[in-house]
Every structure is written in C-alpha cells, then in structure tokens.
Design a protein around this nucleic acid. Structure first.
Lengths: 245, 245
DNA sequence: CGTTTATAAAATACTAAGAAATGAAAACAA
DNA sequence: TTGTTTTCATTTCTTAGTATTTTATAAACG
C-alpha cells in the first residue's frame, strides 16, 4: 500500500494552530494584504506567542503569509501560495470555497500528466512496478460493488503508475491525483448512478505498460480519463441535457 | 515582468538557518533517518534554540524533517520531500548533487505540461494575455545575441503562457520552467555553439494561441521543446555521435 | 522648495530559563 | 510469552524581557 501523510495538523499544539489558521486564510477570512493581529490570536487559541510564531513560520513556508518589522504579519497575495502543496490543497478542499473550479483545474492537470506518465512508465517500469500495478489492478477488479475498496484500489493504481515513471517530479504530483479522485468521489456520491465500468480502461493501460508500448499506454490513459470525465459530467447535474422531458 | 520570489533565505536570522540546513539535508550531509542534534546546532550557528526550532518547523513544512518527543528530530525519507517546492528545488540545484538527473526530470515534465498549457492558452487567452505574450516575444526577437536578454525573454514567454491557461495549478508549475531553463542555461554556456534559432518556434506558438487554435498551439509547443532538447544534446558531449572521426 | 539626514516609534526578531507533556523502551507482573 | 506499569530522554510550550529592523515623520540643509 502506498503511504501518504499530510504534515499538518498533527504533532502537537502548534500543528493545530497551523491547520486552523491555514484554513482561515484560504477560506478568505483574512483577505490577501490584510494584517493578522498575532497578539490577538494568542488568547484566541489559548497558546503562547511562541507557538503562534512557529505556526506563522510554517504558513510562511507555504507562501501564505509573510511578516516584517513595523509592517506586521500579513496574508500574501494568492499567486504566492504554494497551491501544489499537500496541505494547501487540503485546506482548499476543506474550505469548499471553489471546489468545482479546483476539481476542474485538477482534471486538466491530470489530462496532461497521466498520459505522459503512462508513456514513461511503459518505457521504464521494473518488475516490481509491474507487480505493484498488477496487484492494484486485481484489487480493483475484485472490489465489485464495494465503493470504498474500489476507490482505494483506483487511487493505488494511479499512484503506482506515477511511481513507475521513475521520475521523482512525476511521482510527487501524486497530490494532484489524490485530491482529484477525492473531489470526484465526493460529487459522484450516489452509488445507484451506475457509471461506466472502469476496469477495462485500466486493464488496457496495464497491458500496454506490461508490453512496454509507450504509444499504446498513453492512448489507453487518455481514453480512461475521458471515460472518467464523462461519468462525472453525467453524474452531477441530473438530466440537464434533457430539459424538455 | 513576471515577479517570482523565493521564500528562504531572507527575513532575518532564522531564514539563514533554514537555508543552510535545507541545503545540508538535500546535499546528504544528514542522511534520511539520521537524527539531528539540535542542541549542537545552536552554538554552531550562533543562534538561540528558538531560532533553530523555527527553522526546523519550516523545513518540516517542506517535508524535509520531522520531530517527535523521545525520538528526536530526524531527516525524513526522500519520498516525503516536497520536491516541487520552490526552495527545495533551489537547494537541490545548489547542492549540484544530481543536476543532470534533475534537468532530465524537469524536461520530461515540461514535455507533458507545456503542450497542454499551450492548448489551454489557445482556448482561454484574454486580450491582456496576448499583449503580455506579444511583448515577451518581441523582447525575445529583439534580444539578438544578448544572451541575458534572450534568456529572460524566453522565461517570460513561457511563464506568460502558463498564466494564459487561467488554471492556477498550471500557473504554479512555473517552478518547473524556471529551473529547467536555469539548469539548461548553465550547461549550454558556450555561446559560440550557435544553436537553432528559437524565434520561429516561439512565433508559431504565439500565432496559434493568437488564432485560438488549440491543436496548432499544442503541436507548435511540442516542436519547440523538441528543438530545444536537440540543442541541449548537441551542446553537451562534443561530437559523441562521431567516434570514428 | 526640494532633498537629504536625523529621529522616533511600532512591530517583529531574538534570547534565556524552566515547566509540562509525550511516547518509546525498559522493568515488571501475570 | 503477554500485558501493564514505570521510567526518562526529548520535544513542546510558557513566560518575560531585550534587540533589531523598518517605516514614517520631522528637521536640517542646499
């Protein structure tokens, strides 16, 4: 099983402050440019100034805030935020500010990354990669109607594929896959809306990667993503395409 | 001009510690799993324990370290590092540990991202985007033999293109472009190795984006990237392809 | 009148020392 | 062996105070 771990919250009191402040900023409670009253924050969270400062350092490391003598601690403009950071992404989803737009952005990024990753994986996969991909696929196929197992196996498969590129930067884009799938699964909640069977699409990708056929792998992945997108569009606004009925 | 700003170093004493420790970790001075003696660090950097702690918080936010009671503060395994973080990327390049591999990884990522970005840009570009792209291109064409101006305009063009996608996640992948170009320019230092004229390739991209033709934009970008890669291969190992001469 | 140079103040930045909480491992008991 | 308690190293947090940086203001100067 692939392990992933978010950094914040966790690890003590200050992590709590990081999480809550980060969420607030992303939610827009403190608009960019506005100054955060850190002395007022201290009693609010019931922690000492040191903890607040450490939390702000962490948020600063993720591009959310900056602080200078005489000017104060302020929220940086949105284009300074590390939007690809795992925590920032999670806070964004928790804020549910623009979940639709986020999902759209994530999907567009997947469209670029995953076919290319499939291509690279077909060229570079090791025996271990194939074993991992194979077992993820098997779990996928064996999940049947169990939504949770299905979702987990789906994620596992795509992450293993990224890893099989043996390109660390592709591998680190796992955050895109994780949140794209989570966001999608939230929308696609109603189980009775039987979507297209995803197993054949994934099998085609796996076969191409096994065969070491880059072109086929890329093509199969494009196909799988398109099918998945269609499911999504079909799942969301019920029968929007049939207003006359 | 597009503004970019690295977060660390800067902003006081603690930023210095962050930068130096980050570089050390990425350079491999403290191998993953090893425990960092923070009490010993204190006199070494000549700062108080608080500053060391804040620096470690920042590094923790970027996935480089973690610390737990009774176990100590330790370097996390490499696959926890935020390799897409701007600072981590810079430290990696400063460490020059595996600059070749990094450049290869970056190029492979560009191959996936930029054609897709060109496609999106062709569909979504605003009038402002076209003005910005146009002036970047003009600066590019007018740079002549001035390497520095040429490099700056090149970067500007590609960043503007990312921005024209109007997809924040694509836009934030600017870090990939920035470091890919910087790493490339370091290798491609010798100016007399006259590479292929890059202006026509960029012009084709610009024209397609102007015309709102996604397919043409994607194609043109692929073409430009391929030419650029060939320049690189031609520039590095002199005449390796002609061992018999 | 405009420009440079001192001054003041507001906020962060840093230091220092100690108390509290945590959790891993050892000691102990069943 | 297995489960429970105790120990203790280490981080975590608190508190209080000092230093530094930067901006804005005002004064001196040409």
């Amino acid at each position: 099983m692939v392990e992933r771990m978010a950094v914040y919250p966790g690890r003590g009191l200050h992590g709590e402050v990081v999480a809550r402040l980060g969420l607030r900023i992303i939610r827009g409670d403190y608009p960019p440019g506005s100054i955060i009253d850190i002395d007022g924050l201290e009693p609010e969270f019931g922690v000492s100034k040191t903890v607040v400062r450490e939390a702000l350092r962490v948020l600063g490391a993720k591009g959310l805030v900056d602080s200078r003598p005489k000017r104060g601690t302020f929220v940086r403009s949105r284009d300074a935020w590390s939007l690809l950071d795992s925590d920032v992404m999670r806070w964004r989803r928790e804020a549910q500010r623009d979940d639709d737009r986020l999902l759209a952005d994530l999907s567009e990024l997947r469209d670029a990354i995953e076919p290319a990753a499939a291509r690279l994986a077909a060229m570079r996969r090791t025996e271990d990669d194939l074993v991992a991909l194979g077992s993820a696929f098997d779990a996928f196929a064996a999940a049947g109607q169990d939504i949770d197992r299905l979702v987990a196996a789906d994620l596992e498969f795509h992450l293993r594929l990224l890893a099989a590129t043996h390109n660390e930067l592709y591998t680190r884009l796992d955050v895109v896959i994780v949140h794209a799938l989570e966001a999608r699964n939230r929308i696609q909640h109603h189980p009775e809306a039987r979507w297209m069977d995803p197993v054949p699409d994934h099998e085609a990708v796996l076969d191409a990667v096994r065969a070491g056929d880059p072109d086929a792998a890329e093509r199969a992945m494009r196909f799988a993503l398109r099918d998945s997108d269609e499911d999504l569009r079909a799942g969301e606004p019920p029968f929007e395409s049939d207003p006359g009925a």
